[in-house]
Amino acid sequence: MIEQSKSIRIGLGFVALIAILTSLYPGVFAFIPSSRGLFETKPDELLRSSWYIPIFMTHIGFGAIAILAGSTQFFDKIRIKKPSLHRNLGKIYVACVIPSGIMGLIVAFYATGKWYSKLGFILSALGWLTSTIVAFVQIRNRNIQLHRIWMMRSFAFCFAFVTFRIYLSLGEVLGLRFYNYYSYLSFLSWVPNLVFIERRIKKIKKAST
């Protein structure tokens, strides 16, 4: 077993903190009805439909719970010392990823911006669903190492909920025109996450040999 260094524990704690803060996002719609957020960029016809907003809210609602549950899965104190809690939180994570990912895949086809905006969000949803299902299958087969690796990939996609909002806010602070940068966020929100995780996975594999 590779013991987590202090810097890694601090990093995980920071990730968990901003994940918790981001998970509060759905509350904006629940408690501030006048807040339209990204709905401002959607056609009125789409917003008046009977299905779009419920699907979107299902996506971000379950996504928020997935962020909370997933952010705990890499702490050794939980994963090793409290395996029952780790398993239960993992089950919650998977149970939330499936509906959130499927709903996210649907709304991705109606993403604001260029065609590649839709493509980026579609790939993100597919990657999240696929990596989570593979991680679940691996733990069912008792392949713990592969399960951990695929869970890391899964959370890289899940963390796009966080990085998307960071980049979105950064664009506003820099005064960039919304339609000039929004489409790129569909890739920017998850590709760097995945690159970082793949490098981390490579280090873990190297240390295990």
Rank of each mutant, 00 (worst) to 15 (best):
I8R: 12
S35T: 07
I60N: 04
Y110V: 01
L194E: 03
N193C: 09
L146Y: 12
T112P: 00
Y25P: 06
F31Q: 03
T132C: 14
Y93Q: 09
Y182F: 15
S124H: 11
V173F: 11
A207S: 10
R48F: 05
H147V: 10
F14G: 10
G127H: 10
I144R: 13
L38N: 03
R165A: 09
L17N: 01
V97Y: 02
I144F: 14
G175A: 03
R199A: 10
R9T: 04
R165H: 10
T58W: 09
Y184M: 13
M103A: 15
L24T: 11
F155Q: 13
P26T: 02
G113A: 03
L119N: 04
Y110H: 07
A16R: 10
H86E: 04
C96W: 10
G171N: 01
A66T: 02
S7A: 12
S35E: 13
Y52A: 11
F164K: 00
R9A: 02
F121Y: 14
A125W: 03
S154E: 12
G11N: 07
V28G: 05
A135S: 15
S169G: 00
C96E: 09
C158A: 15
K42S: 13
L24Y: 08
W51T: 03
A108F: 01
R142N: 13
G61P: 05
L168A: 06
P26L: 04
L146Q: 15
L126E: 03
N193R: 07
I60K: 06
A30I: 12
K202N: 05
Q4N: 04
S189N: 13
I106F: 02
F187M: 00
Y181D: 09
Y184Q: 10
W150Y: 14
T132F: 05
R140Q: 14
K6W: 04
R200G: 13
L126D: 03
I106V: 13
I32F: 06
I80N: 14
G127Q: 11
A19V: 04
F196V: 15
C158N: 15
F74M: 13
C158W: 01
T112A: 10
A160K: 06
I122D: 10
F187R: 00
M57H: 11
G37V: 04
G113V: 03
